[in-house]
Design a protein around this nucleic acid. Structure first.
Ligand SMILES: [Mn+2]
Ligand SMILES: [Mn+2]
Ligand SMILES: [Zn+2]
Ligand SMILES: [Zn+2]
Lengths: 144, 144
DNA sequence: AATTATCTTGGAATGATTCTAATCCTCACT
DNA sequence: AGTGAGGATTAGAATCATTCCAAGATAATT
């Protein structure tokens, strides 16, 4: 069963932990990320809110602010490909990203146990990495 | 001993292979990358030329054009961190990048034999990756 | 020499993101 | 209920790396 994290319920608690308020806009933005696991851009989050929830009043500036807040609270990770617009991912487990160039879509690749440790072990002495990012680029079959 | 690639001599041949001319500007830009293995940005390449080789006439637009050409010829790789300016790397061997956050410097990490194959093996069936990018972020000791 | 294709260049345009300054809310306290 | 202090949202301006464009060199071909 999934942690309380990666659910709308976890949001208020995490925000409170940082002395921040669970505003309507923050809930809406986080909700969009949880429901659309497509690694959307800020623009895409904004467009989605405009079309699917026209009653929610959220400006572009606020989408950026909310996304930034969620990142600070460690509820969301930023993902960058080349110089494209930043994408946002609510999957908190360590994972790699696969960028399908044919469809220009991105999806998560779970990491087998021990892989991160093994990657760290290739570092020369004296290197202390606090994060590793793995990005595959290619074509993922029809069944994924 | 290093291949003819990663030397100034390889440039003319590679350019010719694409029907391109070995112009002064292309030689200068490639030379800067070969001599400064710092993963410089376009701006830094430009500034370096201006200060160290004032006689060479190279504009900013041309720095961008030359770098793009070198990338197309597979003589240079682009490297991106977050949304920072694109950096350029003339190391053609497969390697990972280590971003030292303390000094904001980047350096290459050689990959042990078999690691790339192993990484590809974690992909679910149907996935065909034609490149993998590995980026460490952290602090590298005083001796590196 | 004329023609053609390739290159370089200054400056304008682009586009994602950040900044700014004003307004709006929420809540605690009188 | 009324007030004040932070916190939050917002429109629009500013930033900045990069790309685009149109004009002027340069070099290769006829
Ligand atoms: Mn990236
Ligand atoms: Mn990147
Ligand atoms: Zn992800
Ligand atoms: Zn490199």
């Amino acid at each position: 069963m999934r942690n309380v994290l990666e659910t709308p319920e976890g949001l208020a608690e995490r925000l409170a932990h940082s002395g921040l308020r669970p505003t309507e806009q923050r809930k809406v933005v986080y909700g969009v990320l949880l429901k659309n696991r497509n690694h959307p851009t800020a623009d895409e989050v904004f467009a989605h809110i405009r079309s699917e929830m026209p009653s929610a009043a959220v400006s572009m500036a606020t989408v950026y602010n909310c996304l930034e807040t969620l990142v600070q609270c460690n509820l969301v990770r930023q993902v960058n490909f080349e110089r494209g617009p930043t994408r946002y991912c609510p999957n908190l487990r360590p994972h790699a990203h696969f960028h399908d160039e044919a469809t220009d879509t991105i999806h998560d690749i779970e990491l087998p146990a021990g892989l991160l440790e093994q990657l760290h072990s290739i570092l020369p002495p004296g290197h202390q990495a606090n994060s590793v990012e793995i990005i595959f680029r290619g074509k993922s079959g029809p069944s994924s």
